[in-house]
Design a protein around this nucleic acid. Structure first.
Lengths: 166, 166
DNA sequence: TTGATTTCCTTGTGCTCGCAAGTATTACAT
DNA sequence: ATGTAATACTTGCGAGCACAAGGAAATCAA
């Protein structure tokens, strides 16, 4: 295939970012940093990190409110060890329970407890409000669709590129 | 003023995200996670983190290749202590030097060394290529402008909201 | 059946980061 | 002038995360 660039790109063949591209890229980083910080700040008083929220939200949207650790780790883009430690905290707080899988005894299931579900329902409205206030509500419906289309192009584009890399 | 919402938003007055809004939000998170991971992966072989790159890039764009620690921390959205530790590493590697300020003896200046500047020039092309491959090159010029306008609306919108909060 | 390989999870270790506290210096108020 | 407050940086400490290694269980091959 050989579609990849060589590791050391020769300086003369670098395509630098023009003003529009640079401004958009920097703004993308800036906006995302701000949003993530706002979300973290919003969840902190409830004793949760955004990672915790991700676990609870994922579990609440899964069949029987439970998920295999390995699947959960993949969804959330965290390492197995990271998920183990994160679950330790959520188990300690009683929001999640561990349950050995009946089908595969290597597997541990993460189960959302009733307390965890109540916690999520209590926190979700404020979280959604933050997402609105920091992002969604500043976009017109047309802008929303434009942004979605653009992000989709980025995602599918990079996904395809990764396929051809392998 | 009292423009803020109460801490506990009553469930009945929550405006949930509709399908378009939710899809855009989730895609925004997904795309950004992927881009940041790709950048980190791109810099790692060079012994740099994205935070390190940010320091070098900022310094290289500043007068005399130097900046007060407090200003640098603000630009990069890191805590003072975080910046101290980050600089420890860059100083150890010889890419940055500390220099007491002549005007204000509380202040420490971070100075880009020649080695640091060379390092940045060596890494920048690959970094730019990654930004292109992961993001910019998947957007048409019209999409780029649309995204920029949307992000700008988000940034100015949240900035204005924060002003009225204070 | 049995041995090798793979998958899944946990633990040890090290790195990064932020908060709180401490020191040094400057700015301000009276 | 002098005491108070604000600013700038560093250090101790704890939380979070990833990598590497290890143990348990499933899968596969012969």
């Amino acid at each position: 295939m050989a579609s990849g660039r060589s590791p050391q790109t020769v300086a003369s063949e670098v395509r630098w970012l023009d003003d529009d591209e640079m401004a958009t890229w920097l703004l993308m980083v800036e906006v995302n940093t701000a949003i993530q910080a706002a979300i973290e700040e919003d969840l902190a008083p409830h004793g949760l990190t955004s990672g915790d929220y991700g676990v609870l939200a994922r579990l609440s949207g899964s069949p029987d409110h439970r998920l295999r650790m390995c699947d959960l780790a993949e969804f959330l883009h965290v390492s197995p060890s990271g998920l183990t430690r994160r679950l330790d905290g959520l188990v300690r707080d009683g929001f999640v329970a561990r349950e050995p899988s009946a089908e595969d005894r290597r597997v541990m299931l993460a189960v959302l407890t009733d307390d965890g579900y109540e916690k999520l329902k209590g926190v979700a409205p404020e979280h959604v409000a933050t997402v609105r206030r920091q992002f969604i509500d500043h976009l017109s419906r047309a802008q929303l669709r434009n942004v979605y289309a653009a992000l989709l192009a980025v995602e599918t584009g990079t996904a395809l590129a990764q396929l051809s890399d392998q």
